[in-house]
Amino acid sequence: MLRGWTEFRQTLTSLSDLGSYLLNSVIFLAILLFMSDNGMENTELSGTGVTQATLALPGVLAMTLVFGGLLTMAQLLATDREDGTLLRAKAIPRGTHGYLVGKVVSVSLMTLLSMLVILVPAVLAIDGFQFTARGALTLLWVIALGFLATLPIGAILGSLFSNPRTVVGILMLLLMGLVVVSGIFFPITLLPEWAQWIAQVFPIYWLGLGMRSGMLPDTATVEEIGESWRHLETVGVLGAWAVVGLALAPVVLRRMARRESGASLEERRHRAMQRVG
């Protein structure tokens, strides 16, 4: 954990690293404020008392968490595998374990910071949020389960690819497709039933639903499946992804670490130089 905290502090002192992490958050915040300033704050969803601008914020937070837990984690692990950082960690007793824990801590902290960059200004600038102690507790357990459901899967995906650019390209396409069908920015009930079933298999939909349940009034459930926040189902699906990820991640990472060697690293560097040439 100390390694993760150290990496997080180093990121905060590097303007380039900090900018790369927070750029998307600043863009999302600007979009939310634009929606608010251009009348969408007053565009109320029928019968809910919730505006379009208010509805968008929980979805943006959920997407930020998913992109941090999956995409950032996978990209960092693939990058460290490519440049030999993971190989050096492997040479230290329990180095691979310490490396993984450090990455989990640092990615979690940076993702939380990215979410706060969006949440705090948006709540102050957009009317309609009714935070309660119960809502705050809901957000806490949803975020905690979200990290457990995404970070191990991100580590698995990162260990399957030695090229971080390949990871980013493939995952970005998959995640954007899931965002479209997951009801992040509009009620999922507007989609065909088959698309709703696909969305409910993956964590993105349930994170968005959980975030909305903690930030929006209960009248907003009229736009949800079953007109309910479905907390038990949220815990069940996110918990299932967490169990699968936590069970598979150590196995996959150990196998990947065993295959790492100076020869394999040099071979990847040679292929990279050929591509550049």
Rank of each mutant, 00 (worst) to 15 (best):
T138I: 14
Q10G: 02
I170T: 13
L175K: 10
T72V: 10
F129M: 00
L2I: 10
R271G: 05
Q52I: 15
F34D: 06
L33K: 05
I153M: 12
L216M: 12
L109Y: 07
L232Q: 04
A240D: 10
L190I: 02
L248T: 03
A240S: 14
G214A: 02
L145K: 08
E193C: 10
W229Y: 05
V181E: 05
L45P: 08
L100E: 08
I143L: 07
R269M: 08
L148I: 13
E266T: 15
D127A: 11
F34Q: 09
L216S: 06
V101L: 15
Q200T: 11
F67I: 04
V105N: 01
V244D: 06
S182R: 04
V66Y: 00
V201T: 06
S25W: 01
L216K: 08
E227T: 15
W194Y: 10
R258L: 15
S261A: 04
A133K: 10
M215V: 01
R259I: 01
M176Q: 14
P152G: 05
L86C: 00
D218P: 03
A74H: 00
I204P: 01
G49L: 00
T219F: 13
S20T: 14
P121I: 06
K90Q: 02
E260W: 00
I92S: 03
Q196C: 12
A242V: 14
G208E: 11
P192N: 02
I118V: 14
G210R: 04
T150W: 04
L148V: 11
T96H: 04
L140C: 05
M115R: 01
G39Y: 05
L15P: 12
G19N: 06
M1F: 15
M35C: 04
R94T: 02
E223S: 09
Y205D: 01
A149D: 03
L61D: 10
Q274R: 15
R230I: 09
G4F: 01
S213E: 14
S108H: 03
E223K: 09
I31W: 10
Q200M: 14
S108D: 04
V120C: 03
G214K: 03
L32M: 09
L246W: 02
E224H: 11
E267G: 02
F161A: 14
A125T: 12
R94N: 07
N24Q: 12
A263P: 04
L18P: 09
D80V: 07
L178D: 00
T234R: 02
I184S: 08
H97M: 09
I126F: 02
R3M: 14
G169H: 11
T43Q: 09
F202T: 06
T48E: 04
G210A: 11
L15Q: 13
R3K: 13
W5K: 05
L29A: 05
K103P: 02
